[in-house]
Every structure is written in structure tokens, then in C-alpha cells.
């Protein structure tokens, strides 16, 4: 196996370095990638088309919104697949887990729990900020969602999984993840029923009292919220099943 690996690595490396001699110079503004119509359009006209100052958010949620929808679907798939792979069925499910030898039985540490108690609201607030402010600063639904999910994971780490599951049970988490997809695809479908193409947010201006540009602006916030729903819940669901070997009980 090692010899095979070395051979593969040498071949791949040779190819990559061969290509690297032909690359555009580092940071060259004239390089085809930076100078093409497409990227110039994104930089020059994002403000005109969508009024969103953060081009990355605009390209992510609007110009290439279809990619992002499937990115959300990928996350959703990961959540469903992990739960399904690790889920115990039938006889195995009722078996009580053997205790690990390094498992400690005492109560969660006081300092840890108090710090977490202080931190979690701040983290969640920051997650909302990242989500809502994604149009003008780095961030957006995905980053906000991960941070939000991390706050639940933090609760599970500091106390144990059941405590976190009191707040967000895994079953409900998966339902909410589906809701996130529904929000995203639903906005796309709504645009379609209003006469545009799938995900053509500008068409939403026919039912909401805003201009076509602002329709895009607000619809982007809508789909980011959908993304955040899915990501938050799936991140927590993945942690919950990975940390408990699919039993969804006990701590790490």
C-alpha cells in the first residue's frame, strides 16, 4: 500500500507542478480568472442588481443560489445519513450500554457549567448577528448556523447530551432541518409560481411592496435563514449521534 501511495503521490505531484509552471502570476489582476466578464460583473454590478454590499453573500445566495440550495441539501443529507447509519434498531436499541472504563460518574464541573451558562447566550446572540449582518459583513446563514449549533454542542459538552436534548431533541432537530430546506426551496418555488424561473427572487416584488433589487435583498435574508435552520440543527444532530454512538443518550 505504501509503495502504491508513493507512486500515486509522485505522479500527482509531477502533474501538479507541471501545471504550476503555466499558472498566472500570483495575484495578477489581469489573469483570466480575475479579469473575466463574470467576475467583473459580480464586482461591478452586485450593488446595482441586489443592493447587497457583501459580494460574497450576493453571489452565494442569489447569483449562484442554486449551488447554495444543494449545499444546504448536502448538510441535510449528512444529518439524515449519520442518524440512519448509527441508529440502533430492534434488539440492540434496548440493550444498555456498557460503561467505558474512563467514564467518570460525578456531576459536571461547576466552573465549566457556570462559564458555559454565561457564554451560551452571548454565542447565540453573536450567531444571530452573523446571520442578520451577513449582507454587509462576513458571515451569513451558514456561519451563523454553525455558531448556533456550536452553542448547543457546548451545552452538551459541559453537562451531558440529555440536557442539550431538552432544549433541542434530535427528532425535532431533523424536522427543523427539513423546514430549513423547505424555506429555501419554497422561496424558489414561490418565485417560480409568480412567473419567473426557479429562485428568481426579483419576481417576489410582485407580491411584496419593494423594488426588484430589494426583493432580491430580502429574499437572500430569507434563504439565509433557511440555511441557518438546517445547519444549526444538523450540526447538533451530527454531534449528538457521533458522541453517543447513535444511542442519543449519555455524555461524551
Amino acid at each position: 500500500m505504501r509503495k502504491l501511495a508513493v507512486a500515486v503521490v509522485v505522479l500527482t505531484g509531477g502533474l501538479l507542478l507541471y501545471a504550476a509552471t503555466d499558472f498566472a502570476a500570483w495575484g495578477d489582476p489581469e489573469s483570466p480568472a480575475s479579469d473575466s466578464d463574470v467576475s467583473k460583473h459580480f464586482i461591478a454590478e452586485t450593488g446595482v442588481d441586489t443592493e447587497v454590499p457583501n459580494m460574497v453573500t450576493a453571489v452565494l445566495a442569489d447569483y449562484r443560489g442554486f449551488d447554495t440550495m444543494f449545499e444546504t441539501v448536502v448538510i441535510f443529507i449528512a444529518g439524515i445519513a449519520i442518524l440512519a447509519i448509527l441508529k440502533l434498531t430492534g434488539k440492540d436499541a434496548t440493550k444498555t450500554p456498557g460503561k467505558r472504563k474512563d467514564e467518570v460518574d460525578d456531576a459536571p464541573d461547576l466552573i465549566v457549567t457556570h462559564t458555559v451558562r454565561l457564554l451560551v447566550p452571548i454565542i447565540q446572540l453573536f450567531a444571530f448577528y452573523v446571520l442578520a449582518h451577513g449582507h454587509v459583513s462576513p458571515g451569513g446563514g451558514f456561519q451563523g448556523g454553525v455558531i448556533m449549533g456550536a452553542s448547543f454542542i457546548l451545552v452538551a459538552l459541559a453537562w451531558d447530551l440529555p440536557r442539550a436534548m431538552d432544549r433541542l431533541s434530535v427528532d425535532r432537530a431533523i424536522l427543523l432541518a427539513g423546514v430549513g430546506i423547505l424555506i429555501y426551496a419554497g422561496i424558489g418555488l414561490l418565485a417560480m409560481f409568480l412567473g419567473g424561473e426557479f429562485l428568481d427572487y426579483a419576481e417576489l416584488s410582485t407580491i411584496f411592496p419593494v423594488s426588484r433589487e430589494m426583493a432580491r435583498y430580502h429574499a437572500m435574508l430569507g434563504v439565509e435563514i433557511g440555511v441557518a435552520f438546517t445547519v444549526t440543527t444538523v450540526m447538533f444532530a451530527i454531534y449528538a449521534s457521533l458522541s453517543s454512538k447513535g444511542r442519543l443518550e449519555g455524555g461524551l
Binding site: 457583501n54 456561519q143 454553525v146 454542542i153 459538552l157 454531534y239 458522541s243
Partner: peptide
């Protein structure tokens, strides 16, 4: 934006997933 995502995902959640699995 990519850096932000990587900080949240790569350094944060991915590492937690790995550690959770290593413990189990």
C-alpha cells in the same frame, strides 16, 4: 467569508466531531 467559515467549521465543528469519534 471563507476564513470565517473555516474557523467555525474546520477548527470548530470538524475537530469536535473528530474528538467525539475518537472518544467512542
Amino acid at each position: 467569508d471563507v476564513a470565517f467559515t473555516e474557523a467555525a467549521v474546520g477548527a470548530g465543528v470538524s475537530a469536535v466531531f473528530l474528538i467525539a469519534t475518537v472518544f467512542n
